[in-house]
Design a protein around this nucleic acid. Sequence first.
DNA 1: AGTGCAGTTGACTTT
DNA 2: TAAAGTCAACTGCAC
Length: 513
Amino acid sequence: MPTQLVWFKRDLRVADHAPLVEAAKRGPCLCVYFYEPEVFATAEFDSSHLVFINESLVDLREALRERGAELVIRTGRLPDVFAKLHAEHPFATVWAHEETGQLVTYERDKRVARWCREQGVNSYEAPANGVVRRLKSRDGWAAGWRQRMQTPALPALERVVGVPGVEAGEIRSPEELGLPASTKHEAQRGGESLGRQVLHSFLRQRSAHYRADMASPNEGWDGCSRLSPHLAYGNLSVRQAYQATTRRAGEVRRLKATGGGDAEELTAWGESLKSFESRLSWHCHFIQKLEDEPAIEFENFNHAYDGLRPDVDTPANDRTPWNAEGFAAWCEGRTGYPIIDASMRCLHATGWINFRMRAMLASFATYHLWLHWREPAKYLASQFLDYEPGIHYSQFQMQAGTAGINTTRIYSPPKQTLDNDPEGEFIHRWVPELADMPPEHLGEPWKLPPLLQQDMGCVIGRDYPLPIVDHLKAYRAARDRMHAFKKTDAARAESRRVYQKHGSRKRPMRRGR
DNA sequence: AGTGCAGTTGACTTT
DNA sequence: TAAAGTCAACTGCAC
């Protein structure tokens, strides 16, 4: 039987892996992962991502070896490395998952497809999640998603026949690949086995108060699923997560029906699981936007918003210049707003922060600092261990208001402090300068008389920065600009088009007049 | 004891 | 997945 190539990308697992299953039916499998320098060279990439990938590769290699095959690792540009491998070990078909990624991987996939055509090598791509390739219309998308999620996940094969005499290739650290060492010393660790453990602990225990806990950077640490990096690198499929969630929801329902626990508690638990399930759907919903419109990596969804804000080397249409100092302060976590700086510094160390704080960071960069979303988005992509291109760019643009189909959401850092870190635990941990300041002052510490600041061990402007913008002034300016702009005919017309193409159909579409 | 008033709360609207 | 602004009702207190 002819050799089959299984190309592992962001699907680093053996369970629910259609390409592996299909390939294994047809012949010995050459299972390969490629380190791609052109991906490492993107602004979105960070060495912490590679560390997570490597941990996943260790696990994947072991899983494949247990089954009788090797995980082959190569480094280089595609399809060159493909060609070299093919020369040594000719393969008949390339089996992979569809990937909805940045332009760099989209172009690479097209080069590989062309190479396959030219070489007479077959290629086959399976859907990776609920995203539909070559989608014609958003109508009926949710039903299609559900159907795909309810198709039974594929169990891991017991045996995979490998190809003898292939040099395995080493798992290489960032340093060995000529990259800086990762500085995220408290990052989540990767791997299919760990991903399954995280899923299990979430569904069994941690999800009990998911809905109530997720907004807080404190409770969210354990109360959120923490599956995001595992989903981003495919240690788990969305389908596996979905099916485990609905199974667990069934158990919780039965437990409640049979009086097997506190009824109120079990009701809340059921609602939390439902809420998580809908987030799994949103996961694919947002990736679908990048799949349908790859340009949103670089350009506004809604082109009427072009030039509204200054970009790194292009002033805004109204000549507002790029705020380089503001951008640097935001990146480095020294804006003078403790909740903003704590969130950014938490990201620096761990690569994770809950959704609400992410939205707040994006809001601060694009509204308070009035920056085009592109540079902030690239920076946060590098800081998110769970960076998922489709979710990232869709969400960032939604938050920046450049899709023009959602209400403008400008977060107030002081209010978020009060609402989500009332005891100041989070800020005290990540902004140690303020460790001795009582929580009630952490929203706006500069308002405290200097003598009291001194008593509390932190003089604002000396030990911790003064706020780089005035919240209320910046809020009003941004709000008014957005609002005035939203009213223009060009913005409205474009919004209709964007909604038509990308809007969720949860609520019936508004009739255009 | 009722009145006036500053300050608070909450629903609703606007941006 | 927002928050400010507005307005009216309410509260507590002084006189």
